[in-house]
Each structure stands twice: as C-alpha cells, then as structure tokens.
Design a protein around this nucleic acid. Structure first.
Lengths: 343, 343
DNA sequence: TTGAAAGCGCTAACAG
DNA sequence: CTGTTAGCGCTTTCAA
C-alpha cells in the first residue's frame, strides 16, 4: 500500500492525502478524518526511504562507536545510555543508527556519514581530553551533542555530562570525614575526559584540607577487575599503605576488594572502598557495613534521554547555539539490599 | 557532490558512472578506472536514501530492544553483542538500526518496521521460552535471526546460541567433582529461554549422578546483586545449607559472596561460587583459590558477529532455509590476574 | 560499451 | 480547500 493507491481508493490526489496525513492546515477536517481512517484501515505507513529522499532529512541520528583491539571499548554503561536515547528517538520518530568503526578510521566514518546522508546529526560518546572529532564535525557542519565534555572550550558546543569532578570530590570528602588520610585513586584511562575530571575532584578535596597529593596513590588505566586487584595488592604491602580506595568503576572496586582479602585484611575494618559506578552493585564503606555508591544506571539512562532531546531540538530548530546540562551524581550511602533508587 | 554532477564533470552519463562504480561488467576498464578516481578525488558517496528508494533495499538491519519498567532490560552483555554485529554490518555496508520499544507495543513496532521499509531484516534478542515474536515475523515475511532459541521448534528458523545447557552441566559437574553435594542454582528469570536451558543443565548433572533435585536450592529471577545476596543470606542459615552456589551472572555471584561473608563464612573454604557470566570479572572456586568462569565477553561479541553474518546471507541470497550455530561456553579455571583469554 | 528515459514513493511549489 | 507538476538522487530497462 502506497500513497498513490491510497489516494486512488479515496478518489483524492496523492498531495491531499499526504497533506491530510502530515497535519497540514489547508485540509478540511472532514477530508482529514476520512483519509486518516482509510490509512488506518489499510494499515498504510509512508515509505521511509521515499520520505527521506523527498524531504532531504534522514530522520535518523548516528552513534559512532569507536572500537579498538586494545581496549574494552563498549562499556556496559553504554547500553543504558542508548536505552534512554532510544526512548526519545522513538517518540520523535527518529531512527537510531549505530556505526561501529575501527579506532583509526573515525575520520573517514564521519565524512561518509555526512556525504551518504543517512543521519541528521550525531551523538558523541566518551570524549577524550583533546578530542579531534569535534573539529571534524564542525568542518562537516553536522549537528552533534557530546555525552561528556572535552577540555577547554566547554561552551562552544552542546553537551550533557555528569558532574564527575563534584562526584569524586564528594566521595573523597566522605572518606576524609571518616578519618582516612591515605586514599588511593583507581581511575580510568588518563586521556579520557571523564577520568581527568574525576582526578581533579579527588585532588581538589585533598587540597581543600591542605593535604599533599601522593602521585603513587593514583593509578590510571583501563577499569578492569585486574586493575583494582593489582593496585591493591601492590599498595597494601607498602610501609604506609592506603586505608581507603576510591575507584572509578565497580569492576576495579571488585578487584581492589579481592586484593584486600588476599592481603589478609578485612574490608570495612582495615580498608574501605568507595566506588563510582553506573552499574548495579553494592560495596561497603568503612564504618557502617553498608553499601555506597555515587551513581546509578538510571542516571546514565537519563543522560541518554537528555542528549537525544537536545540533539533533536538542535536539528529541528536549526538553532546551533550550544546548550549544556550538568547532572549531579547520586551519592548513595547506607543503602541496604533491594532495588537501587531511581535517582 | 552527486551522481549527476560527477557525471557531468567526467563528460559521461549518470548511468555509466553508476555502472562503473557498482561494478557492472559492461563498462570498459579504462572508463571504470577514470570514474573511480574521480569519485575518490571528489569524495563522492552515493546518497543512501536515493539508493534505497531506487533499489527497494534498506541496507539496514533492525534490532528491536524491548524495554519495560519492571526489569533491567538492557543488560550489559548486549553492548558486546552489538559490537560484534556492528563489525560485520560495517564491512557489508549495512546500517544497524536500533529501535527501543515498550514491552507492550512490540507487535506494532514490527509491523511498522515492515511497512515503513527501513530494514531488510531483524535480529531478535533474548527470546523467551514461548516467544510470540517469531510468529509475528513469520507473518510479516521478514528475514530474522535469533540470538538464542525458543522452546520446541529449534529447527524452524535460524539462530545462534551458546550451549547454555552444557555450560551449566559442566559447571555443576565441576562442583560435584570437588565434592559438593548441596549446590544452589541462582538463575535468571524462568520465562527466558536461556534460563530454562541452564536449569536443565544443572538438573541433568545431578540426575546423572542419581542425586535428588531440591527445588528449594533453585532461585529464579532478575540477575541482580540483591538476588544473589538475599538467596545466600537465606540459604546459609538453613539446617543443611548449600556448600556451593552456581550463579547465572556475575552480579548475582557478587551478591552471593557478600551474603557468604555476612554469614561469617569464608569464600573458597566454607562455600564456593561458580558463575556463568559474560562480563569481565573474577571469582574464586572452592579449592585452588583461583578465579573461574564459564563465558567471557568476547564470546558474546563473536555471537554478534555470527548472527549478523547469518542474517545478511539470508537477506542477500533470499535463501530462508534455517541455519543454526551452537557455541560452546568457555570454562576458565585457574586463571590468574591479567586479561581474560579471548576464547 | 554508452546513453536516454522512466520510475522508486514521497513532498512542495505553484495554480486554481 | 484541492490538484498538477516537478523533482529528491539513484537504478534499470531499453535502445543505440
């Protein structure tokens, strides 16, 4: 069933049917209803490709997922993010097009996306401190929104980000308030923007109390279980070991926990862990024998929603003036078993 | 830059240029080369929408992600799966279109996908034991491949699956060999096909040794940390508690571990855990103080690759005869810190 | 080996 | 308020 035959059946021109279905004002209500009902009855849906070609709009948003053989690129968080974004796209009638590209051919991927014209805009994931993708997109003139930020020009483009600095400042303060004086930071890869900001938060908290920053207590790398384990194993046999670990991911925290146990120490008595993570999980802090975290999966989903909404608005309005949304991480302390609170 | 202007610049007709670029045989090699070079130089890429409209092929594969407010639908594994599928799509020139739909309007979503014509086939995730989506797709006549299976008609359609039954049978045997006689199974939601198969594997191992199956030792539900924790807490205060937990997810395993510790017991001495999971992580078994799992992330990625390849072949060849690929889970025992082996 | 012309299904000026 | 016409950028007969 297509426009033409539907119009034929109704004894109308394709134009009128199109107008009726697309809510143009110059159609009589009677006709519109008649057309709508017929379309419904015939289970008519306009062919997307034709619509796209005619309007020049792809009605699709691209997500480019860089992939490398070195790293675990696709982190679990990503799933929640696209779930959120997808909700918004579905409501607005956009498709979500996922493109997996090898790390080294990202430039080509963007250029192709542009000239092939199958997306109206792109959503950028996991920006690095200095991210060349921004410049590329500016050159191409394609609308985009960042999930995260890049160093420097915070205000030059639209982004949605969690306040990573504040989250880690709060977490560090939490541990400092408990009396910890040697706090290790098990962080993500240094060149990632979020990792940089988290580190800044950690450092800011220490500086605010006039405490020295010991570089030996900071580990940056892939946030794996092995990372946490190895760091804990090593640090805990120093003459002056840390009494607490602040980790950037649940996996690292799990590893640290294993390291602590292997060192014959007791979690929550000898050593504490506080973790930031977007996964569902529980870790105890040093006093209350209670779990604690600083972000939940649902907040990532919300970030996905907001990014998508921002991008769609930008595309549809043509207004490219940058907008920003900074979300505060949720610090959950003393949460007992059961579902994690939504926010 | 479009076909027309490129042809104009070359002093050729659009037809010839199109033919040259698409590898039609009736073009002289000289012309072909000249066209190819010009296209390269001009950074020409055919407009996807136009191509789609003209050929009637969407050059896109749909992934429908059902979403509900009750469950954590989008599991982390999903990210690895689409990473694998995406690799294949990219090579074959397909777009991956992700559609998030509320649980209750899946039927409509499929029908729309069909009539809007923006995908050539779909990939089905996380099938339930009895999955009505199969019937729907058959009605619509749209090519599809399942990641997983459904009960009964294994052979009626194409699928790629991990041998969940075998994996759990092996894991159970592993624990039985260590001398465990009361093994708890912390499983996924019962209506999911994979959960059903895992349970069958567990039961088969027990039956093979003429051991009774104690329903009280089987928990089915969402694979969260709380699930594992609550199960362990409760079971460990029974008069005859389990000495081992076989869990279907790393999160549940983490929870069980916490439950074990809270009960004042020692992991790897009093109680063992073996987990199946697609996440990167470590858990110790009951003897060697060494980590163990039965599946890694990379295997999920491989499943994504195979599903995608199967579907593309089906679409392009028009051959709908069902094909199946059963992947064996990887059982890793005695793995020490460091990256998880690829297979 | 190349080109002209029609058409994929829709939208959007422009008339009426 | 409705219809006619042209065209989005490509592919694909058919003819040369």
């Amino acid at each position: 069933m297509n426009l033409k035959t539907l119009a034929l059946e109704l004894g109308l021109s394709p134009t009128t049917v199109s107008r009726a279905l697309n809510g143009y004002p110059e159609v009589s209500e009677a006709t519109r209803r008649r057309v709508r009902e017929a379309a419904e009855a015939a289970n008519y849906h306009p062919n997307t490709q034709a619509k796209r070609l005619a309007t020049g709009r792809a009605m699709a948003i691209g997500h480019i997922i860089p992939i490398s053989d070195r790293h675990e690129i696709v982190n679990p968080v990503f799933a929640d993010f696209i779930a959120g974004a997808g909700e918004v796209y579905a409501r607005a009638g956009y498709d979500m097009v996922m493109t997996i590209v090898p790390d080294d051919s990202e430039a080509r991927a963007y250029a192709e996306l542009r000239s092939k014209g199958n997306v109206d805009g792109v959503l950028i994931h996991a920006p690095k401190v200095e991210d060349h993708r921004i410049a590329m997109l500016d050159t191409l003139g394609m609308p985009y929104v960042l999930h995260g930020r890049v160093s420097g020009s915070d205000s030059a483009f639209s982004w949605v980000d969690v306040n990573n600095k504040r989250a880690f400042e709060r977490a560090t303060n939490f541990l400092l308030d408990l009396g910890h004086r040697r706090i290790a930071l098990i962080n993500g890869i240094g060149e990632m923007d979020f990792a940089r900001r988290r580190r800044r938060g950690y450092e800011a908290a220490l500086k605010a109390r006039d405490m020295a920053i010991d570089p030996a207590l900071i580990v940056e790398g892939e946030m794996t279980e092995a990372q946490g384990h190895d760091a804990a194993r090593e640090m805990l046999q120093w003459p002056n070991p840390p009494t607490a670990f602040l980790t950037a991911s649940l996996l690292s925290a799990m590893g640290a926990r294993r390291g602590i146990e292997e060192a014959g120490l007791v979690m929550g008595r000898d050593v504490s862990i506080v973790t930031h993570d977007d996964e569902l999980g529980y870790l105890r802090n040093g006093t209350a024998e209670e779990p604690i975290f600083t972000a939940t999966r649902s907040s990532v989903r919300e970030a996905g929603r907001r990014c998508a909404a921002l991008l769609i608005e930008q595309i549809e309005s043509g207004d490219r003036s940058p907008r920003h949304e900074l979300m505060e991480a949720v610090l959950v302390v003393g949460q007992s078993t059961g579902p994690v609170p939504t926010q």
